[in-house]
């Protein structure tokens, strides 16, 4: 009898639970990538995740590591509390665009500016999914949603927020990358980004975030294939993929070193503190 070899299996860090995600939703792919990275880094036993309010609100049931459920938008604050209590642990939050960039923008910006050593997985699908398809902070101009029925009018509703671009100005940030998961190649790149983010965290380099440009077939009213096409056609020009900050690639040890260099002309930054 030929030797059997397991070629594909559920990651250990992903529990055998049926998710609540719609068919064709990219959440399932990204949940799996996070779990695979946790497995590969061997950190499940010291990993704590924070689930948000949104479609991934039930994620605390899906991941095998310890999990905390946060109030809407507050995942970075909850993650801060978890990480500061046990700095040796690996802490991640998993958030959607409404959670991260609307109600939770203050928490997002300040966790990044403090250089909290956490990893944020940001699902940007340009819509509020769980509540049934309302306009999100990342909804595109003229995008039709339940609460922008005539298309997002930027004159009255303002412009979409490019999160990676905005956070890249902050000194506490070590790593930012925007990816998508519409093809095997891009899935592999997304996983590499997530792995790098977790690795940077374990090396205490600073705040890390991976933005996954995603789809919402249900609320966009498209098939999954059509949704990917729409995403490539409309979202990627507005939200270009790529690395927005990588302090290591820039030649620094960590975010703190990069911040020091950036502000070297400021005498206050170089004040030597007494021990």
């Amino acid at each position: 009898m030929a030797e059997e070899k397991v070629m594909f299996d559920r990651p250990h860090a992903l529990l055998p639970i049926v998710t609540n995600y719609c068919p064709g939703c990219t959440h399932g792919i990204v949940n799996r990538l996070v779990a695979e990275v946790i497995d590969e880094l061997g950190i499940e036993g010291r990993c704590v995740g924070v689930a948000p309010v949104g479609c991934s609100v039930m994620a605390y049931k899906f991941f095998g590591c310890d999990m905390a459920e946060a109030a809407h938008g507050r995942a970075p604050a909850v993650a801060t509390g978890l990480k500061r209590t046990h700095p040796e642990n690996i802490v991640f939050s998993y958030q959607g665009d409404g959670d991260l960039a609307s109600i939770g923008m203050a928490e997002t910006v300040h966790a990044a500016s403090r250089g909290e050593k956490i990893t944020v997985i940001f699902i940007n699908n340009a819509i509020y999914g769980m509540t049934g398809g309302q306009m999100a902070p990342t909804s595109l101009p003229n995008q039709i949603t339940q609460t922008s029925p005539y298309g997002r009018d930027v004159i009255t509703a303002g412009y979409p927020i490019r999160v990676c671009e905005m956070l890249s100005t902050l000194d506490g940030v070590a790593y930012l990358e925007r990816v998508c998961v519409d093809s095997p190649r891009n899935v592999r790149k997304a996983k590499a980004a997530i792995k790098k983010a977790f690795t940077y965290q374990s090396e205490s380099r600073g705040y890390t975030l991976v933005e996954v440009v995603s789809t919402c077939p249900t609320n966009w009213g498209m098939t999954p294939q059509k949704a990917f096409e729409w995403m490539r056609e409309n979202m990627l020009p507005y939200y270009p993929l790529g690395v927005y900050k990588d302090v290591v690639a820039e030649g620094f040890e960590n975010a703190a070193e990069a911040a020091l260099k950036r502000a070297e002309a400021c005498p206050m930054v170089n004040v030597q503190k007494e021990a």
Partner: peptide, 26 residues
């Protein structure tokens, strides 16, 4: 211990939530 000035009261109480969840006296 850790003293942290949060960006808002909302954030502060959610940091308390996180630290408490992690087992801290907070």
């Amino acid at each position: 211990g850790v003293y942290l000035q949060a960006e808002s009261e909302i954030s502060a109480i959610n940091m308390v939530y996180g630290a408490s969840a992690a087992g801290a006296r907070v």
